[in-house]
Design a protein around this nucleic acid. Structure first.
Lengths: 111, 111
DNA sequence: CTGGTCCATGGCTATATTGCCATGCAACCA
DNA sequence: TGGTTGCATGGCAATATAGCCATGGACCAG
């Protein structure tokens, strides 16, 4: 992997990393296609407000969500409409994995 | 987020985490749709063989790749055909982000 | 059997991530 | 003006991750 490729894959890994946390996945699902304030997400997640704010900062710096400020409130929303493909991929991997585990269980019991 | 939801999102986060590393993204691109040995990936990545083996274990435990052993060689391949959607999503986020950064630069210089 | 190749794993250190608490700042209200 | 609300950030401790070296097991060639 040369230097150009390293830069390329690090940029992609940064985005994937931002998606690689249960709280952040929950937030993206919860926001879906509407705006959402930090306090709302904090209440739903049951985490400290500062923690939620930092999670949102990770998503923001990765370019996955955008923020709009109105008074003292920050409204976050998903800024790229491509996440469905990502979530679908996760579901497929889970489904494949369950299927394969069942197959290997069947093979074990039959042998 | 209740307990059931936590389990759900942790399972998805595990998969996303497995995808969230430049070396692992490179390996998935490199393997694409053909089998690949550990030594080949090690040579391409320029990392220690043990490091590559551990990266492959992460992908394997997430259900993203599968392994076939022939003699002393382990051949890995992508086991779920859904990664295209995932990679497309990463590309889109990058594209969105570049566009938005250019816009904000333009706004900054015009103000 | 001997030596060599291929791979997986344990051990270790360095770094990154995650959570909380405390604090700071800006906006709004009385 | 002083109090409250909503959010972001710094600091810290606990944990997780990533890389290397060393090792060991399985297989193959001679």
């Amino acid at each position: 992997m040369n230097n150009e490729q390293r830069i390329k894959y690090e940029a992609r890994a940064k985005i994937a990393k931002a998606l690689a946390h249960p709280a952040r996945l929950f937030m993206l699902d919860w926001m879906h296609d509407r705006e959402c304030s930090v306090s709302e997400l904090t209440a739903e997640l049951g985490l400290d407000q500062s923690t939620v704010s930092k999670h949102l900062a990770v998503l923001r710096e990765a370019g996955i969500v955008s923020v709009r400020k109105a008074g003292t409130t920050s409204f976050y929303r998903v800024s790229c409409g491509c996440l469905d493909g990502f979530f679908t991929c996760l579901e497929n991997v889970l489904k494949c994995d369950i299927t394969k585990r069942q197959q290997s269980l069947a093979e074990d019991s039959s042998s």
